[in-house]
């Protein structure tokens, strides 16, 4: 109990100053999405991972990465959702290769997720399990960012208001077929740019300005 309380009251790890003073237009973002076998964090396995880089409201499609992960875990009902079948999975790569590639972006990019906590919990877990050291990561959550922009004038938010397609529609972005990791990562990054545009149209703001939205988080480097 005391341990838990201590954790709550402990100061949040600070965001490195170098990030905070960087103008939003200059920040390299890496938008990541995972497809999982289930939403139960104790049991879930990564089926596929996709990411794409963006900077200054521009996304070079050359930076797209997508990898199906070979796993022996039961797929449960997940093929219905993301279309990955046992055949796809069998042709996948070991998770280690994807994680080694992802790790290269830890210090250079702000990582963007639609629901950071879920994906980062899973990622932290697998990095630890495979014994791959992960440096400190700064993350930005488009779900929280969207919630902040929504609840400023509307609270509580209507049900479903934070799911990705609904979020995108609020920023007049076209509907995209969801549930492929790369498609979702792309959709999330596009959403982030729309959110930044709405938040700070003048382009002179730094990352510090986003602190108020509660979308930024820091995940310290694994110490063990």
């Amino acid at each position: 109990m005391f341990k838990k309380l201590k954790k709550w009251f402990a100061p949040k790890p600070p965001i490195p100053e170098a990030w905070l003073t960087m103008p939003l237009a200059d920040i390299p973002f890496l938008c990541i999405d995972l497809e999982l076998t289930s939403l139960d964090l104790n049991d879930t396995k990564i089926l596929s991972i996709g990411w794409v880089e963006g900077q200054g409201k521009q996304i070079s499609l050359q930076s797209c990465y997508y990898q199906v992960i070979s796993t022996t875990a039961s797929l449960n009902q997940s093929p219905v959702i993301h279309g990955l079948t046992a055949d796809h999975i069998a042709q996948g790569q070991p998770l280690r290769i994807a994680l080694e590639a992802l790790r290269q972006f830890a210090s250079s990019h702000v990582w963007v997720f639609h629901c950071t906590n879920l994906d980062m919990t899973v990622l932290n877990g697998v990095f630890k399990k495979l014994n791959i050291p992960l440096p400190t990561v700064v993350t930005l959550d488009t779900l929280r960012f969207g919630l902040y922009q929504l609840t400023k004038n509307l609270r509580p938010p209507p049900p479903n208001a934070v799911v990705l397609p609904v979020c995108r529609a609020r920023y007049n972005l076209p509907a995209v077929p969801a549930h492929n990791a790369l498609d979702d990562a792309m959709a999330t990054l596009e959403l982030l740019f729309a959110q930044i545009q709405k938040f700070a149209p003048k382009n002179t703001d730094t990352l510090k300005a986003l602190v108020v939205t509660d979308a930024l988080q820091v995940f310290p480097a694994s110490t063990d």
Binding site: L61, Q197, P201
Partner: peptide, 10 residues
């Protein structure tokens, strides 16, 4: 291709 978010400022 580069996908750009086109606003008046950008």
């Amino acid at each position: 291709i580069t996908v750009a978010y086109f606003s008046q400022e950008d």
